[in-house]
Design a protein around this nucleic acid. Sequence first.
RNA 1: GGCGCAUUCGUCUAGUGGCCCAGGACGCCGCCCUCUCAAGGCGGAGAUCACGGGUUCGAAUCCCGUAUGCGCCA
Length: 488
Amino acid sequence: MTVRVRYAPSPTGDPHLGNIRTALFDWLLARHYGGQFILRIEDTDRARYVESGVQAQMEALRWLGLDWDEGPDKGGPHAPYVQSERLPLYKEHADRLLAEGKAYLCYCSPERLDEVRKRQQAQKLPPKYDRLCRELTAEQRRAAQAQGTAPVVRFQTPLLGETVAQDALRGAVTFQNETLDDFVLLKSDGFPTYHLASIVDDHLMEITHVLRGEEWLSSLPRHVLLYRAFGWKPPVFAHLSTILGPDRAKLSKRHGAHAALEYRRQGYLPDAVVNFLGLLGWSLDDHTEIIDRETLIGHFDLDRVLPNPAVFNADKLDWMNGMYIRRLPPEELATQVRPFLEAAIGRAVDPAALSRIVPLVQERIKLLSEIVGMADFFFTEGPLDYEAATLLGKKFAGEPRQAAEGLEKVLSAVQTLEPWQREPLEAAIRPLAEQMGVKAGDLFGVVRVAVTGRTATPPLFETMEVLGREKAVERLRAALDRLHSVTS
RNA sequence: GGCGCAUUCGUCUAGUGGCCCAGGACGCCGCCCUCUCAAGGCGGAGAUCACGGGUUCGAAUCCCGUAUGCGCCA
C-alpha cells in the first residue's frame, strides 16, 4: 500500500508557520515512504474565504520546496481538489447515510437552537443539540417541510457507550458517546461541514495518513464514527501539537509576523526554515541540529514526533539561518542577496562587484536582508553620513589633531600605492601607527569610519581593496576636512 | 462549565526501569583568536525530570491523584 498524505488548508489568508509545519511533516512522510503528497483546498467555509488564500498557500509551499503530486493546479486521479467543486459528492454521501437511517433531517431554526443552548447554559449543562428532530414522525416532518424551512442533515450519534480512537502520537483516546451530539453533516445551503467533507475526501482520495493540528483531536470520535457509518477503514490520524509564542499562547498575529512568506521577505533561507520546523516536535537523535532535506526525508517518521506543544524559538532559527548562509557557495549567496541590496539602494548592482563583497560578509550576516547594513557603504555615492565623534572614537575623542595627523599619513601613504590590494595596504598603514605611538587597532578604527562610515565592518584592508582607490581616497579626504572643521 | 491533550535547563530537545545526582542545541556569561564586527575554539552558569502518593532491590521512565497550561464545545 502506498502512503498518501494530504495538506488541506483553508484559504483564509497567508499560511502560518504552524500550518507550514504540518505541511512539512506531511511532505516528509510522503517522501520518506515514496508515496504521494496531495494538496487539497478546503474552502467550504465561505464566510472566511479569502481570494488570494489559495495562491498564498501554494506560493509558500513552493518557496520551501514542498512539491505536491496532486492538487488544484496539477489535477490528478481524484480531481477536483477544491472542495467547493465537489459539492455533489458530499450531498450524495449525506443522502446515503440518510437512506440508511444513520443520519436525519433537522428543521430546527437557528433561533430555536439558540434558545436550547441558552437554557442548557443556564442549567450549567454542556450545550448540545437536543435531538428534537431525531424522532420526528412522518407527519411532523411533512408539516415542517410545508413551512418551507431548509433542513440540515445531522449525524445520528450513538447515545451510549464510548468511542475509542487511535492517535499515532498519543495512542488510544477514549470519548464517552453521551458527550457527543448529533453534529451537522450538511448545512441548509448545501455546503458540507468540515466533518463530512474531510472524511469523504480523505476516503475517496485514498489518504492513508491524516496529519492535522491538535485542535481537531476533540473531533476525532465524530470522524471515527463517520468512518464506521460508511463502512470505511479510517486512515492513521496524527494530531500535531500547537506551536506557541513566547508567552505560551498559540502562535498568532499578536506575536508578530509569522506568515511563512514574511520569512522570505526578511531573508530567511528555505532550507533553514525547513530544518528548523522539522526539529519542532521531531528529532533525529540526541545531538544533530543541522539536517539537510535528504537526511530529513531519510529519517523522518511519525514515531519520533512529540505530542507536546512547542514554543517557537526565534533565536535558534536565526542562528540556523546563519549556519545555512555560511554554507552557501559564495556565488549562490550573491544572487540571493542581490535583490535585498538593490531594493535598499534603489538601483541595479553589478554582479561582479557583488561577488567581491560577498566573501567579506558571508560569515557576518544571519539574514539575507542584513547585507544592506553590512555592505551598502560600498555603493554610497557622495559623502558618508556619520558624526565626527564616531570618527574619533574613544581613543581620539580628546585628540582630534592626532587623528587628523594619522589620516594624513594614511592618505599620503596610500594615494599612489601600487598595487591597490589588501596586503600592500596593510603593509603601508600598519607601520604608521607605530610611528605615531598608537595601537594599530586605534588607527585602523579611524580609517575604518572614514572609509565606511561605520564602526563594525568587514576586515579593513579587504574592504578598502574592494572599495577601490578612488572612493577610499575621496573618503579619507572628506574625513580630514571634517576633522579640520572640528579642530580649527 | 464539560470533555480531551500535555507537563525534562529561559527555549527546542535526548531519554521507553539500573549506562542519568539527566546528554545535546539556541540564548546568556567568561577566556582564546583578532584591526572593529562576526565566525571559530575552549570553558561556565542553568533542570531536586510540575507536585504528592504508590509499584519496584532500583523510576525522568510504570500506576493513581493534584496542580498548571493548552485545545475543543459554546
